[in-house]
């Protein structure tokens, strides 16, 4: 019995010491870089600036703004700095989150958080990001990822430099923004919204 209790007490002390250092190591190894290196460094240079205005609506980005189309596809060249102007369009909270892959990824970067963009209609938040990596990027709202979901195509700089004028306002005709059509369910929602708005008015 004596040997067993000796070892249990020593074991207790050893467990404490191991857990002290183990816990400290675990905490100090927490991720501190922004989302797998998506953060733009202050020294990063950009060749062009493109303005993109997005209306944040739970039924889709730019819902009801540009006809029946939502979630515009944005085409830019590598090294372009996009200045996102996000305008609250309903009363739901939204984020603007981007990732450097064709679908939502765990290594993402939230440019505009729910605490920045308030739920007051018309509230505007501006954020910018320099798109350096060629390939498809995705932008979405973390709260409504199934409806508010669009693509940013970053093309190689040499081929498409002619297509983009620097410091220009992005519009559908210029850089070929393609639009998805609103599905019928969303139309029903919109009709409901319209009729309810009429009733309230």
């Amino acid at each position: 019995m004596a040997e067993r209790t000796i070892s249990s007490g020593i074991l207790f002390g050893v467990v404490i010491i191991i857990l002290m250092f183990g816990g400290l190591y675990y905490m100090l190894s927490a991720p501190t870089t922004l989302n797998g290196g998506l953060i733009e460094s202050s020294s990063m240079s950009y060749t062009k600036t493109v303005n993109v205005t997005l209306y944040a609506n739970a039924l889709g980005w730019d819902y009801g703004i540009k006809g029946d189309t939502v979630n515009p596809t944005i085409n830019v060249t590598a090294g372009t700095r996009i200045i996102f102007t996000v305008i609250e369009d309903d009363t739901a909270p939204h984020t603007l989150t981007i990732a450097d892959s064709s679908k939502e990824s765990s290594t993402h970067l939230t440019l505009i958080t729910t605490s920045q963009l308030t739920t007051t209609i018309g509230h505007t938040v501006v954020a910018s990001y320099i798109f350096d990596k060629v390939g498809p990027w995705t932008y979405w709202c973390e709260i409504h990822p199934t409806t508010m979901f669009g693509t940013i195509n970053v093309l190689p700089a040499a081929k498409t430099s002619a297509q983009v004028n620097s410091n220009s306002q992005l519009n559908p005709g210029q850089i070929g923004i393609s639009h998805n059509t609103v599905n019928s369910l969303n139309s029903i929602f919109q009709d409901l919204l319209d009729s309810s708005g009429a009733l309230v008015a």
Partner: peptide, 27 residues
């Protein structure tokens, strides 16, 4: 709680506690 590596303080005030971004250790 130990494994979560949360940084919300012990208050869990939203919107900080609603932050599910790995940065800020809120993942």
């Amino acid at each position: 709680i130990l494994l979560s590596r949360t940084s919300t303080r012990w208050y869990f005030y939203p919107p900080l506690s609603l932050n599910l971004n790995p940065y800020n250790a809120g993942g």
